[in-house]
């Protein structure tokens, strides 16, 4: 794009983000403050993820952008266009061929592989913020690994509801040291955070934080011995591809309680449908 640098950001900004990314990888799960820039997209719409992607992206990369697991949601389309325009990179929807996947709210169904990079858009990077609004205070708590507040919150949930009531953005411990927000992915996706061969990078633009999970790193969803972590999904099979294990969207079909369930991961669903058709 005329007048702008490759991938929009200027080189000094990229270097600043790159340095932060390297430290983020060296200290898994630790939120690193960075000089987040004002982007031509609104805060809260993926500016952190976009900055991370822009700092990592090269002309040989293949970029996939998803929102809610789908490649064709409007914000995913908008971000994909942004990079096609500013970096001229190839954009694809197939999870397996992408080298960088920027995501909001999902981890793809298909297992990621070594060498892939998953970039998360993060609205509120600090899992403690819901319990303690002051960042000065939560920074101190992370420094001391003082996470009792979160355990108390989970325990209160259990006494009140019988189990933990958090169903997305479920807090995790990374490498047994840092409490981390996995971004608002459904708890269903949490197990994929752990020991994933892909590099997972997290960018929060408005809150000006970057963090990371290196490949193969242990990530544990917080729980108790007598109340182990468990995930939920709609107890159905996908009405399009028949998958009975994937994460499903519930689609309202009429005003009389009619529902259908379809995979949230559009690439996963389309691939399965194509396979089925080929077999028939």
């Amino acid at each position: 794009m005329n007048g702008y640098n490759f991938a929009y950001l200027d080189e000094q900004t990229k270097r600043m983000i790159r340095r932060a990314l390297l430290k983020a990888v060296a200290i898994p799960g630790h939120q690193i403050p960075f000089g987040s820039r004002e982007m031509p997209l609104p805060y809260g719409w993926g500016t952190g993820g976009i900055q991370v992607t822009a700092a990592v992206l090269g002309p040989d990369d293949v970029l996939k952008v998803i929102d809610q697991g789908a490649d064709d949601t409007t914000n995913a389309v908008s971000i994909r266009r942004f990079f096609a325009r500013t970096a001229g990179v190839a954009t694809k929807t197939h999870t397996s061929v992408a080298t960088i996947i920027q995501t909001r709210h999902r981890i793809p169904e298909q297992a990621l592989t070594e060498g892939q990079i998953l970039v998360y858009q993060v609205p509120m990077p600090d899992p403690l913020a819901k319990l303690e609004p002051s960042r000065a205070e939560t920074t101190r708590m992370h420094g001391l690994a003082e996470y009792g507040l979160m355990h108390v919150k989970l325990y209160e949930d259990i006494t009140r509801f019988g189990h933990v009531s958090i169903s997305y953005d479920y807090p995790v411990m990374v490498n047994d040291r840092y409490l981390m927000s996995p971004s608002p992915i459904p708890a269903y996706d949490n197990p994929k955070l752990s020991r994933n061969p892909a590099l997972q990078l997290f960018g929060a633009g408005r809150e000006k934080r970057i963090y990371a999970i290196p490949p193969h790193t242990e990530v544990r969803s917080l729980d108790f011995d007598d109340h182990p972590f468990r995930t939920t999904r709609a107890p159905h099979a996908c009405d399009l591809c028949g998958d009975d294990a994937s994460y499903l969207d519930e689609v309202v079909t009429d005003n009389q309680g009619g529902r259908m369930f379809v995979c949230s991961d559009t690439d996963h669903c389309a691939s399965r449908q194509a396979l089925k058709e080929a077999a028939e």
């Binding site: 640098n5 490759f6 990592v56 002309p59």
Partner: peptide, 19 residues
């Protein structure tokens, strides 16, 4: 190429730091 040279070098270091 300062832009792409820096990008490639960074990705190599990121790869090394991640593995």
């Amino acid at each position: 190429d300062p832009v792409l040279g820096a990008q490639r070098a960074f990705r190599a270091v990121l790869d090394a730091m991640s593995h």
